[in-house]
Every structure is written in structure tokens, then in C-alpha cells.
């Protein structure tokens, strides 16, 4: 799993501020949360950083695919088993007798639900890996039989 430090290692580490961030480390964090894109760092596009640029582009899948909490669902792998829906602690807290008990979600506040056979995200800001009090919850990753969920 990627963390900000790993990303930082691939940046120019000059703190040139051309990206608008105070430091390269801040840019790394912003990259991780998909606030910015790799192309927002001008020096990276220079030839000497070509390799790093490519590596980073690989690690940082384009925003849109990933949600704000860094959660990516590989929908082509998802089989709609609902394991993540039922195991997700936020789903359990918000909807104990629906999603938390293995049934259809009955609350609009759930994060994960299955629509048309694949998982769909909503309210991702409630994900335990997001926000100020984040923890490294992995309820939806370890319960997925096909490794369809990933955090970046």
C-alpha cells in the first residue's frame, strides 16, 4: 500500500513551490488524497525525472476512479457478494438491522452497497480511513474474495 513517504521519495524533493504547495511532502500528501494530479508538479515533467514521473503515474491512478478517501473499486473484479457491505463498520453502525445483518441496506448513510451486481460507494467521507480521526480500517479489503477493493 502506498503512503505519502513513498510518493515523496519519487518527487524532486526541492521544495520549489511551483505546484503551489509549501513543500514536496505537502504535495505528496495532496497527491495521495487525489487533491492534485501528478502533472501539477512542473519539474517532474523534465527528462531527468522521467522514470519517477512514470512510476508515480502508475501508483496514482487518476482521480475519478478513486474516491476522496483513496478507495478504489475495481468493478471488473467485483462479484457483488456483499461481504464488504456487511463487514464495513460504518455500515454496521448506520444500519445494524439492514446492511449489518446481511440484508439490503435500509439507510441512506451507508458507504457501500451493491447495485446491479457490483459495489457502489457513497458517503465516502464517513469511511474510517478518512478525515481527522482516521484509522487504518481494512474491513472491506480482507473480506473481499476477489481483491476488488484497494486503498491508495
Amino acid at each position: 500500500m502506498t503512503n505519502a513517504l513513498e510518493i515523496y521519495q519519487l518527487l524532486p524533493k526541492t521544495n520549489c513551490k511551483q505546484c503551489g504547495k509549501a513543500t514536496c511532502m505537502a504535495f505528496a500528501a495532496a497527491l495521495l488524497s487525489r487533491e492534485v494530479v501528478v502533472d501539477d508538479c512542473p519539474p517532474l515533467k523534465e527528462d531527468k525525472f522521467k522514470e519517477n514521473y512514470e512510476k508515480l503515474s502508475e501508483i496514482i491512478t487518476p482521480a475519478g476512479e478513486a474516491s476522496e478517501s483513496g478507495m478504489i473499486v475495481h468493478t471488473e473484479k467485483c462479484i457483488g457478494c456483499g461481504n464488504c457491505v456487511v463487514a464495513c463498520p460504518v455500515n454496521v453502525a448506520e444500519d445494524p438491522y439492514g446492511a449489518g445483518s446481511g440484508n439490503a441496506p435500509t439507510s441512506d448513510n451507508v458507504i457501500l452497497r451493491v447495485e446491479d451486481g457490483v459495489v457502489r460507494l457513497s458517503n465516502v467521507s464517513q469511511c474510517r480511513r478518512f478525515g481527522k480521526n482516521k484509522i487504518l480500517c481494512n474491513g472491506c479489503i480482507v473480506t473481499c474474495p476477489t481483491k476488488a477493493i484497494e486503498f491508495v
Binding site: I79, G80, C81, G82, V86, G102
Partner: peptide, 17 residues
């Protein structure tokens, strides 16, 4: 997971009972 995909999530392993 391949034959009865919701078996674990709906009844056996993951749900609260």
C-alpha cells in the same frame, strides 16, 4: 464465493445475528 456469492455475507460469516 463463486457458486452462492452471498452465502457468507447474508447468513453465515459476516452478518450480525
Amino acid at each position: 464465493s463463486n457458486s452462492h456469492p452471498r452465502h457468507l455475507s447474508k447468513y453465515t460469516y459476516f452478518p450480525r445475528g
